[in-house]
Simulated assay, not measured.
Amino acid sequence: MAKNRKVIGQKQQTGQVRIIAGQFRGRKLPVIMADGLRPTTDRVKETVFNWLMPYLYNVKCLDCFAGSGSLGFEALSRGVRSTQFYELNAIAAKQIQDNIQLLKASNAKINKGSCLALLEKEQQEFDLVFIDPPFRKGFVGQTAELLESKQLLADEAVIYIEVESELADLQLPVNWQLLKEKVSGQVAYRLYQRT
């Protein structure tokens, strides 16, 4: 009996994300549906990547709090030079690794661990960063501060942030200029450029 429950539970915890455009267009990648993991919806992702169109070619991308890896894989598909994924959840991190192998994406790498701890050790500079953490944990401000203090952003880096729509006071570096902003239900999503 317990075995059946476990199998049923595992079935309920899997899903998929679709790559919208680019080299891997139409590919569906399996994802683990765990607590706190919210893959960005196709509608939001489409808007975001329309915003990002001028900034994608041949850049180094970091997907913080990667979860399903949906944003990082979409960026890979659309021509970034490389994507690095950070993910704390071991099962989600393994799924990202499996999806990297599935796509034969030699320019992608998964780092398992806390985003803040991984940023402390990071050495390279990024041109594009996705910050889409679990809601209501205060991670955005801390992540932004580390990216700046550790000098991990290129001069005109572009930063995408997804937060809960009710979050009124978001503390970000003064040199991050808001380019685009939209709210969709419980999600506010914004694009910044470092100046």
Rank of each mutant, 00 (worst) to 15 (best):
G26H: 13
C64Y: 03
C64F: 10
I20S: 08
D63A: 12
V48Y: 00
G26K: 11
I32R: 06
M33I: 15
P39N: 03
R27V: 06
A34L: 11
D63E: 12
Y57G: 12
R38V: 07
P30Q: 14
R18S: 09
N58C: 04
T40F: 02
K45L: 03
Q23H: 14
A34S: 15
I20P: 01
A34I: 02
L29P: 14
R27F: 05
A21Q: 14
K45S: 05
M33D: 14
N58E: 15
L52F: 14
T41P: 10
I32C: 13
K60H: 15
L29G: 12
P30L: 14
V31A: 10
R18D: 13
D42K: 00
L56S: 07
L29S: 09
G26Y: 11
Q23W: 05
P39M: 03
W51M: 04
Q23G: 07
Y55T: 06
G26D: 08
G26Q: 13
I19R: 00
T41D: 02
F49N: 00
F49T: 00
I32S: 10
L29C: 10
G26M: 06
P30T: 13
F24Y: 15
L29H: 10
L37R: 00
G26A: 11
K60G: 07
M53L: 11
M53H: 15
P54N: 11
M33N: 15
G22E: 03
K28I: 05
M33C: 12
R27N: 11
P39G: 02
Y57C: 11
W51H: 05
L62E: 12
C61D: 11
P39Y: 01
T41A: 13
F24H: 02
I20K: 04
P54D: 14
K60T: 13
